[in-house]
C-alpha cells in the first residue's frame, strides 16, 4: 500500500501537523518507503493468530478506586505556556 500527497495531507490534519507544500513530496516519498518496508506483513494470512497488545500477554493491573493524589494545580500550571487565575489560556473558541 502507498499514500498520495493528498491522502497524507488528510492524515496530517488528523495528527494536527502541517504538511508544508515544499516538503510534501519528500515526506510522502519517505513515508512510502517506510510503508514499503512494512508491506510484507500484508501478504501474510494471520487471521487465526490473536493480536498481542502486551509484550508478556498480561492485562494491566487495576487499582482500587480511592483518592490518593492531592490537588497540585499550581505546580502543574507553573509549567504551562499561559495560565491565569487557575485556568489555561487559549485563543477564543467561541466568537
Amino acid at each position: 500500500m502507498s499514500v498520495t500527497t493528498r491522502q497524507l495531507a488528510e492524515v496530517a490534519t488528523l495528527a494536527r501537523l502541517q504538511l508544508r507544500a515544499e516538503q510534501a513530496e519528500s515526506v510522502t516519498r519517505s513515508i512510502n518507503e517506510i510503508l514499503g518496508l512494512v508491506d510484507q506483513l500484508q501478504a501474510l494470512d494471520l487471521q487465526q493468530v490473536a493480536p498481542m497488545a502486551h509484550p508478556r500477554d498480561e492485562v494491566q493491573r487495576m487499582r482500587t478506586d480511592e483518592v490518593t493524589e492531592t490537588n497540585q494545580r499550581a505546580a502543574f500550571q507553573a509549567v504551562a505556556p499561559a495560565a491565569d487565575e487557575g485556568l489555561y489560556v487559549v485563543p477564543p473558541v467561541i466568537e
Binding site: 492524515v11 500484508q42 493480536p51 498481542m52
Partner: peptide
C-alpha cells in the same frame, strides 16, 4: 495513518498478530 479508519486492521491489527 496505520491507526486511521479503514487501515487499522490491515496495519496495526496485522502487526499485533505478527508480534504474537
Amino acid at each position: 495513518y496505520a491507526l486511521s479508519s479503514g487501515y487499522y486492521d490491515a496495519y496495526y491489527g496485522q502487526a499485533q498478530r505478527a508480534r504474537r
